[in-house]
Design a protein around this nucleic acid. Structure first.
Lengths: 224, 224
DNA sequence: ATACGCTAACGTACTTTGTACGAAGGTGCC
DNA sequence: GGCACCTTCGTACAAAGTACGTTAGCGTAT
């Protein structure tokens, strides 16, 4: 028997790189990147801190792997099908994934070399654009534009002190106080007449910009 | 004389909150956020670590202040003038500022309460849009769209392992190796036929997307 | 002038974190 | 049984944030 299960109760499953990374993902999702330490990860896995290092070189390797795992969760477009709806679907998926893993957006700037899921992702998006008739130059333009929008939107969502449509008013109050009397009148007007209205959800702003961008790209494609 | 200059050489200027923040800015610009520690900051200022804490509550307060300093460097649009050129100018300024302080984009997700420069900035942009005839709803749409694009573009620039048009080829080689034989064909084709061409600068992609977005907003404004 | 109290800088030390180094326990093969 | 290995862990150190109390210099009231 190679099963590490002995008498009197289930012995914990063997540690693997997979389990280490899944544990790291879980910890980060629960408490953010700041709560992800080797020690907290070890506790999550039910082992001692230094055991992690047998399966992973260092913490940076964990973070790089997390980025690639997150990329892997994003729906890929299907090259050859209608490029607009495919890219639209991919963009929405990316936003959902980045909203699910709020901490991930901060790791993108690390500049580490991209993982396989990241490369696969890039390759598929490029394929979708090229097959739709975009030139190399227009593909680069379109890709930079779409990803800037998606990442930037995710970044702004991550910067919000709340999530979803829940109680914008409560969190806004201390900020409103900072605005003081009469300074920032336009900001206050927008906040009270729009952002703080019940039911407002910043996430809903996503579709407007995305469709505007896709419209613009379609127009550019027609001209090219 | 309240001058802290004594005999035999210039005594260092008194520490102030201003000098602490400028020093932090300087350290971060030189070596990135990672190199900004209380100890490195103290060394930069020529004092001992704990001296910093007389002028600043903690490190987070320093980081928050840095964000606001960076916001303060962005050109404000002028409400009432042609909104397109004003917002265009502001967007370019924002990109330049965020490229000058690559580390700043990572601080935006911290979700801390915005500083005065940040609020002033928001207020002025909103004013520009409202005076141009945008409804409250369209103002929110436009603002979210433009800032997502600007921040996302800056984020992607910060993620690049190099800066400017310098030697994309050199850095690309190890990445190209990762791509392996035959996987990611479209990505390789784009890289060799476009990104790695001499003179290519990712930063040049900015104008395309920005103009596309402004075009789209102008069209939306006409319909509204 | 002397004492008092405030300001600004600092010294010491504790905590958290990443991780180097090597030992310990188990397992399969000869 | 002995040995090589794979995996886990114990110990310990360095870097970093910062709590706490101390000290030197200065202005002001007595």
């Amino acid at each position: 028997m190679s099963e590490p299960v002995s008498e009197g109760g289930q012995r914990r499953a063997r540690l693997t790189r997979e389990r280490v990374l899944q544990g790291a993902l879980s910890v980060a999702d629960s408490g953010g990147l700041g709560s992800l330490t080797i020690r907290s990860l070890a506790k999550e896995l039910g082992v001692k801190p230094m055991s992690v290092y047998y399966h992973v070189a260092n913490k940076d390797e964990i973070l790089d792997a997390l980025v690639d795992i997150v990329f892997g969760e994003i729906d890929l477009p299907v090259p050859g099908r209608d490029w607009r709806s495919e890219l639209r679907r991919r963009a929405h998926s990316a936003r959902q994934v980045l909203a699910r893993h709020r901490w991930a957006i901060g790791l993108l700037e690390s500049g580490s070399s991209p993982g396989p899921a990241n490369l696969r992702h890039h390759d598929t998006v490029i394929a979708t654009l090229r097959e739709a008739g975009f030139s190399a130059e227009m593909t680069a333009h379109a890709y930079a534009l779409i990803d800037s929008y998606v990442y930037g939107f995710a970044l702004q969502e991550a910067a919000l002190p709340f999530e979803g449509p829940e109680s914008v008013g409560e969190v806004a109050e201390p900020i409103m106080e900072l605005m003081g009397a009469g300074e920032y009148p336009h900001l206050v007007e927008m906040a009270t007449s729009y952002y703080m209205q019940p039911g407002y959800d910043f996430g809903d702003e996503f579709v407007f910009g995305l469709d505007l961008i896709l419209d613009g790209l379609e127009r550019s494609l027609g001209l090219g």
